[in-house]
């Protein structure tokens, strides 16, 4: 009787997370590799913007529609946006309280929001890991 081939676990599917990050929140310029991925988490690709309030909900929908497993926005600490209201604007837009809003058909579980200061690299990475875990089986 010939031996059965060893059971090899299927290779874990590589996920892609797209993050829109305000350049004045976490120290994002120091956290990226040459491919615009986080050095601490290569599955997470980053778009850097002047302010989180610049993110259009349609851009997050675009990422999800084109294969992103999840998407998030990261702005300055709440009540401390460098441009005063950017983080409040994007939070209200993603929560459906301000125009333009996310489409109703968008799976909001795959849309994350983080608000951190430039000294919050570690808390951001922890929050991101939690968010990724919460979206793993969606």
């Amino acid at each position: 009787m010939s031996e059965l081939p060893p059971i090899v676990p299927a290779e874990k599917k590589r996920r892609v997370i797209v993050g829109f990050v305000c350049e004045r929140s976490i120290p994002i310029h120091d956290m990226l590799d040459a491919h615009k991925a986080l050095t601490d988490d290569p599955e997470t690709k980053i778009i850097i913007l002047p302010c989180s309030g610049m993110v259009k909900p349609t851009q997050m929908e675009l990422a999800l529609a084109n294969g992103a497993d999840a998407t998030f926005v990261c702005g300055c600490a709440m009540n401390d946006c460098h441009y005063r209201t950017g983080n409040i604007m994007i939070r209200e837009r993603l929560e459906g309280q301000r125009n333009p809003k996310l489409r109703k058909s968008t799976d909001k579980r795959k849309v994350g929001m983080f608000f951190f200061t430039m000294k919050d690299k570690r808390p951001f990475l922890e929050a991101l890991a939690q968010f990724k875990a919460s979206t793993e089986n969606l």
Binding site: L49, C51, G53, M89, N99
Partner: peptide
């Protein structure tokens, strides 16, 4: 800041 860009549908 671009907040106006985010606001424009």
């Amino acid at each position: 800041c671009g907040i106006c860009v985010g606001a424009c549908p």
